[in-house]
Design a protein around this nucleic acid. Structure first.
Lengths: 116, 116
DNA sequence: ACACAATATGAATTATTATTCATATGTAAT
DNA sequence: ATTACATATGAATAATAATTCATATTGTGT
């Protein structure tokens, strides 16, 4: 999955190579829930796990791809490792998604299937 | 998967419900490749399939979630159904991803794993 | 150096998602 | 109404990703 501190995605071409891992990070309920917690404030793995009622190791596994894609960062604080959201990218991203949803998902969270 | 023209995602809460399907659509090499083709110009299923060297039915299957999320639209033109990109959303999105990649993926398409 | 706390890792299992192939549906022209 | 072209659908299989659980690692304070 990575060749020495770089992660290379096997990909067909172009756009894909950059985008696939990026969007994959975000297309997972657990990771989205973790991100949602990190919007509030930086947290440790255990804090996120407790807040979500999930196992510590599961959260740890899930934070990894987010870190690799730099959607979150981490640094030590005493014996804890604190994870923070990359707010620059994430806020810009959510702004677009929310805008899109407002336009196309009138029933709050459900996507309208448009017919032509 | 959908209850009568609406698709409902089973989801833990909040942000997730809106975001999960959105990002899921985009975290797939085939769909990203199809989108890349549609950036150039609107196309039919067969045109996309030929351009990518893939089966027609596979592309058809893959366009469906993009349609449901309104990331593409479609309309008939004679016997063909022409698919077009929702450029408003997609261009804004790619702009963010490219910007993020420029900042964090110095080796063009490979993601730098940051150590602290 | 030791013990503890916090987090990470690996590998097996389970769950989810993609692809394929056969076939159905729809459309337009003759 | 029949044919041919274009696309969609369903269901089986294959591929990929997520979760779990046991355990390893790493850092901290004593």
């Amino acid at each position: 999955m990575n060749n020495n501190s770089y992660c290379v995605v096997k990909m067909k071409k172009g756009l894909n190579q950059i985008c696939y891992k990026f969007f994959s990070c975000l297309s997972n309920p657990t990771r989205l829930a973790a991100i949602e917690k990190l919007i509030q404030k930086p947290m440790s793995v255990n804090e996120i796990a407790n807040a979500l009622g999930e196992e510590q190791s599961m959260i740890s596994h899930n934070l990894k791809p987010l870190l690799e894609c730099n959607l979150i960062t981490s640094n030590r604080h005493g014996k804890k490792r604190i994870y923070s959201l990359n707010t620059e990218t994430m806020e810009a991203l959510f702004k677009i998604v929310k805008n899109h949803a407002k336009k196309y998902c009138p029933k709050g969270g459900k996507c309208l299937i448009k017919e032509d």
